[in-house]
Design a binder for these strands. Structure first.
Lengths: 303, 303
DNA sequence: TAAGCATGATAGGAAAATCCTATCGATTTT
DNA sequence: AAAATCGATAGGATTTTCCTATCATGCTTA
């Protein structure tokens, strides 16, 4: 029985004019390729290639078979392409960027959910700071970004997904006798621990705990919420924590979570994509999925 | 990896609209067919068929994939057909190299003859010196070469075709009073006109008219026998002419042809091909055709 | 001229794909 | 309800494909 494998190997052989090199082209050992070529020749009852010291030549039949083979392989390729060209919602590859203060809490729920609802989805994720993600989005390296609004860049569409309230996290054995609920001017900025430069949460924390008139900030920045909260648990200070992180982080660190007084500060998480993208429907579906997951997570935190 | 097997099963399924019956069509059990269809759907990331109570329906994507699949299967079928259609003797392209001192006399007879006996032949000709032809043969650019034996190169097979005696050609109004038949030491090498470097006939001429003790040779070489014989006719000297050229050349130049005394010097013309070539039968047929043509031409010369 | 190199073929056993029988679960028919 | 239909699933056998190691041959080099 003639197979596409044989044709692919034969095509490689015709291109390389050398069994060993052709084998490399198709990522297989030379005997494996040899065997398939021989099988093909036997099946067709024709010598396709002439093996001589000065190289490998196609016979006349080989030339004809090659041209037909190439046509067939090209059509198979087209078939695969066209079949994969996702026509339905969230079919095929989608590349999503998520900010680091959100990804560890959202992604573990979101991905399995998407996979089960959209079995044909192929998810590629990237975690980075907003500016990097937005740049990648603009360059077509990502299809969508999940980050804190507002986003100012031109040419992008956004859709609010959910509101993520801020809490203050401090060591459980804290000597600080802070009132709960907290008001923003009670925060000692010199005790505030921050993520490194570039994270939007850093800027948000500074905005919440207005720094007017205060002198020094803790100069080093952590690279993840988890690190930051370990520092908090060890009594090195306190930090702002988004509600979505609470369920996960409170369970693994001895920390106390203190709410702010109304109006509670919060960040708005939104979905961002290129306005020119033709995947409007995918974005709708993705937004619905993310909102749903976020609601689940926040509900778990409240409990 | 997409396979023809999957496509064949899919085609059967689309025709039968029933897994069990499709399985019968391709002589396989129902689970085997099921598995291949599932594999194909997974690979393409698309549902091809809808399994419902009232039978099996193709999805929209399935319809498209089906039409492409059928086209591909048909082409594969054609490939097998055409490859199996054992090409008979001397069908299709054959690339033949012929040396310049032979081609102008042999080819005009050989080609029409081949065309009439083997109507499906496609002849490509190349005229060059032996070394060039043999190199092309080795690189698979030619299928056969007609040249003077012996040929030394490895990996080649040869078959003698005919013997081509040498004569001496001189101006008809020649003042030289040479005995006929001629003996080799009667030739004045300083009057001998030669082809340019690389032609085997040049070397043969020098071998025949042993140059031992002689001084100068005519330094410029002609590029063809015809040119050479025009020079002879114009009294610039004399030259060796192979018998096969006589009929053509004697009629268009005022020259006298003088035979050598026995044993008459001659060149052996042979057919040369790669030993690894699978076209043994073509070579036999070609050899027979060439020998036949050569006999005709030589007979014409004798008359 | 012999040793070394390049190249495709061969051998033997491992890994992967494919298949088969038997059976399940869901649905339709009797 | 019982029986029948139909595609999916399970478990194990068979076939195909592959890999490593080695061979055979012809060419190149020392």
């Amino acid at each position: 029985m003639l197979t596409l494998r044989q044709m692919r190997y034969f095509e490689a052989l015709a291109s390389a004019r050398h069994f060993g090199k052709a084998a490399e082209l198709v990522h297989v050992s030379q005997p494996a390729l040899s065997a398939q070529i021989m099988e093909m020749e036997n099946h067709l009852g024709v010598k396709l290639v002439e093996r001589s010291r000065s190289g490998v030549f196609l016979t006349r039949k080989g030339e004809e078979v090659l041209s037909r083979t190439r046509a067939i392989l090209a059509e198979v390729d087209q078939l695969e392409q066209s079949a994969r060209a996702s026509s339905g919602t969230l079919e095929g590859r989608i590349r999503i960027g998520v900010i680091p203060t959100l990804a560890p809490y959202l992604v573990p729920r979101l991905v399995p959910h998407l996979r089960s609802v959209y079995p044909a989805i192929e998810i590629e994720l990237k975690e980075s700071v907003t500016s990097r993600l937005v740049a990648d989005l603009g360059e077509g390296l990502l299809d969508a970004v999940v980050a804190a609004l507002p986003i100012e860049t031109e040419g992008l569409s956004t859709k609010p997904l959910f509101s993520d309230r801020f809490y203050m996290a401090m060591a459980d054995d804290e000597r600080n006798i802070l009132m709960s609920p907290l008001t923003e001017d009670q925060v000692d900025v010199e005790q505030l621990l921050l993520l490194e430069e570039g994270h939007c949460l850093r800027d948000q924390a500074l905005a919440v705990c207005s720094t007017a008139g205060k002198r020094r900030l803790v100069s080093f920045g952590a690279t993840s919420m988890t690190t930051l909260l370990q520092m908090v648990a060890n009594g090195m200070g306190m930090t702002l924590i988004p509600e979505i992180a609470i369920a996960t982080e409170a369970s693994r660190n001895a920390i106390r979570i203190v709410p702010f007084a109304a109006p509670e500060p919060a960040r708005e998480i939104g979905l961002i994509w290129r306005r020119s993208s033709p995947r409007e429907r995918d974005m709708e579906a993705l937004a619905t999925a993310i909102s749903g997951c976020a609601d689940d997570i926040l509900q778990a935190a409240a409990a």
